Computed example of a mutant assay.
Amino acid sequence: MTGAQRSDARRNHARILAVAEQEVAARGAEASLEQIARTAGVGSATVRRHFPTRRALLEAVSHSRIDALSRRAAELTGAPDGRDALLRWLDEVVAYCATVRGLAVALSYAGPDADPVQGNTCAGALEEAGTPLLDRAVRDGAVRADIALADLITVIVGIVLAVEHRADAAAEADRLFRLTVAGLAPHA
């Protein structure tokens, strides 16, 4: 492959990703790959070459948001109250998922587009970022020891997907997440 071809491939990738971000923002996880290809000025095979599955495309679109949530988790690791830090971060994950169309699907673990080799890089990044917060809350005795961050992400995804078509999805997702928080406390 010549340098010009690689340069063209990089431009195509950037153009496809920019169009995909707009389409996912407008239409959510079901954004049409064919429409993305048309708008980007490439063939659908080119889109599939860069993003072989819908999940791969959604993860690429969600990458900067996941990075922001990961940075926020790192900022909260030094907070004085471990449970409060974990819940503040999880609140932000809920808010992001409820307001950014396609993010909840990118975080989901199952589905026909699941990549058995690479797994789910969005969820994996959040798990890695949030695990120190959860571990601290568990050490402080503020959260049950049998809870994994993957469980919490799954709960958030479920809540967000359940309310995504409601008029005020973000408020409803927040309210439902609050209902689950009581289940985080250790048994008396």
Rank of each mutant, 00 (worst) to 15 (best):
A4I: 12
A4G: 10
A4C: 03
Q5H: 14
Q5C: 10
Q5L: 15
R6G: 10
S7H: 14
S7A: 15
D8N: 13
D8H: 14
R10P: 07
R11E: 15
N12P: 01
N12G: 09
H13M: 07
H13W: 11
H13D: 14
A14P: 00
A14E: 12
R15E: 08
R15G: 04
R15Q: 14
I16G: 04
I16D: 01
A18Y: 05
A20Y: 10
E21Y: 03
Q22L: 15
E23R: 10
E23A: 10
A25M: 10
A25K: 12
A25N: 14
A26D: 13
R27A: 10
R27K: 09
G28T: 01
E30Y: 07
L33W: 00
I36M: 04
I36R: 03
I36N: 05
A37R: 01
R38T: 01
R38G: 00
A40F: 05
G41Y: 04
G41V: 04
G43N: 13
G43F: 07
G43E: 02
S44R: 15
A45V: 09
R49N: 12
F51R: 04
A56E: 12
L57R: 02
L58I: 02
L58Q: 05
A60D: 01
A60W: 01
V61R: 05
V61C: 02
S62Q: 03
H63C: 00
H63F: 03
S64W: 01
R65Q: 09
I66N: 00
D67K: 04
A68Q: 09
S70L: 03
R71W: 12
L76S: 07
T77N: 08
T77E: 15
G78A: 09
A79R: 08
A79F: 08
A79H: 14
G82E: 15
R83Y: 14
R83F: 13
A85P: 03
A85Q: 01
L87C: 08
W89N: 05
D91T: 13
D91G: 11
D91I: 08
V93Y: 02
V94M: 13
A95R: 13
C97H: 06
A98S: 11
A98M: 09
V100L: 08
R101P: 01
L103H: 07
L103W: 06
A104F: 08
A104T: 06
A106W: 05
S108T: 14
S108D: 15
P112G: 14
P112A: 15
P112M: 09
D113N: 11
D113I: 02
A114I: 02
A114H: 06
A114T: 02
Q118G: 14
Q118S: 12
G119R: 06
N120P: 07
T121C: 07
C122F: 04
A123Y: 07
A123N: 11
L126C: 10
E128I: 00
E128W: 02
G130S: 05
P132K: 12
L133S: 10
L134N: 09
L134H: 11
L134C: 10
R136N: 14
R136P: 11
A137M: 11
V138W: 02
